[in-house]
Design a protein around this nucleic acid. Structure first.
Length: 219
DNA sequence: ACCCAGGGTCATA
DNA sequence: TATGACCATGGG
C-alpha cells in the first residue's frame, strides 16, 4: 500500500488540476494589495475592490497614502471589513514607500524581509508569506486554513500546531528540491483550487472540507 | 435566514 | 499560550 506524503500530495493535486498560474495579478504591488484584501474574504469580492482601485487610478502606494481614509474605504467596500482594511492597506503602503519600493525590497534577504513585513500593522504570518512567495518569489510555503484542514485530514499533522511549525515542516519536506519557489507557488494554489470541491451538504460535518468526495457525508 | 470566505488585532485569563 | 469578540461584503 502506498502512503501519501506531503510531496506526493503535490504531485497528485498537480495531476488532477494542472498548473494554476498564481497569483492572479498584473504587478507585485497588486499582489501585495490583494494579499491584504483577501484576509478572510472570498476572492471574487477582492476582485471588485481591486477593480475599483484601478478605475480610480488608485492602485499605487502614493495615491492610497495621499487619499482620505474614507475614500480608500469606499474603494475597498466590496471586499468587506473596509474600515479595517483601509487602515491596513495604508500601513502597508507607508511601509512600501519607506522601504524604497519594490526594487529596494527585492534586495532584502528573505528572513529579514519577513520580519519587516510582520512589523506592519495588519500583516500577519499568512499575508506576509503570500507577499514573500507571490510578490517576491521567495521559497516560503503559505499555510492557510485549507492547508491545515487538508493536512490534518490526511494525517500529515495534528492540526493545532503553530503556524511556523507547519511552515517549516512543509518546507523541510522539499528541502532537496531545486525549484522550491515554483513548487510552493503551485502547491498553495492547488490546495485552494482543491478546496472548491468541498461538498455542499448542510449542516457541514466539519470533516468534509478539501476532499472531492466526503466519506462522512457520503457525497 | 443562515453559513462561509485565500486573517489579524485586541482584550482577557 | 490560548480562547473570544470584532470587523462586513457578497454568493450559495
Amino acid at each position: 500500500m502506498s502512503t501519501v506524503t506531503i510531496p506526493r500530495l503535490f504531485d497528485l493535486l498537480l495531476q488532477q488540476y494542472g498548473q494554476q498560474y498564481w497569483w492572479p495579478a498584473q504587478s507585485p504591488f497588486e499582489v501585495i494589495v490583494g494579499a491584504v484584501l483577501t484576509q478572510n474574504t472570498a476572492w471574487t469580492n477582492v476582485e471588485k475592490a481591486i477593480t475599483n482601485l484601478k478605475s480610480a487610478k488608485a492602485l499605487s502606494a502614493e495615491v492610497i497614502v495621499a487619499a482620505p481614509m474614507r475614500r480608500v474605504a469606499n474603494w475597498l467596500k466590496p471586499s468587506g471589513y473596509f474600515n479595517v482594511k483601509a487602515k491596513r492597506l495604508r500601513h502597508v503602503c507607508l511601509w512600501y514607500l519607506e522601504q524604497g519600493g519594490y526594487k529596494k525590497l527585492c534586495r532584502v534577504e528573505t528572513a529579514r524581509l519577513r520580519v519587516s513585513l510582520l512589523s506592519v500593522h495588519g500583516v500577519g504570518r499568512e499575508t506576509a508569506d503570500d507577499i514573500l512567495l507571490y510578490a517576491f518569489q521567495r521559497p516560503v510555503f503559505v499555510i492557510d486554513a485549507y492547508t491545515r484542514r487538508l493536512f490534518r485530514r490526511l494525517g500529515f499533522i495534528a492540526g493545532a500546531e503553530a503556524y511556523d511549525i507547519l511552515r517549516s515542516k512543509v518546507e523541510r519536506s522539499f528541502a532537496r528540491r531545486k525549484t522550491k519557489v515554483m513548487v510552493f507557488n503551485e502547491y498553495h494554489a492547488l490546495i485552494v483550487r482543491h478546496a472548491k470541491n468541498v461538498c455542499k451538504v448542510k449542516p457541514r460535518c466539519g470533516e468534509c472540507c478539501l476532499t472531492a468526495v466526503c466519506a462522512r457525508c457520503g457525497v
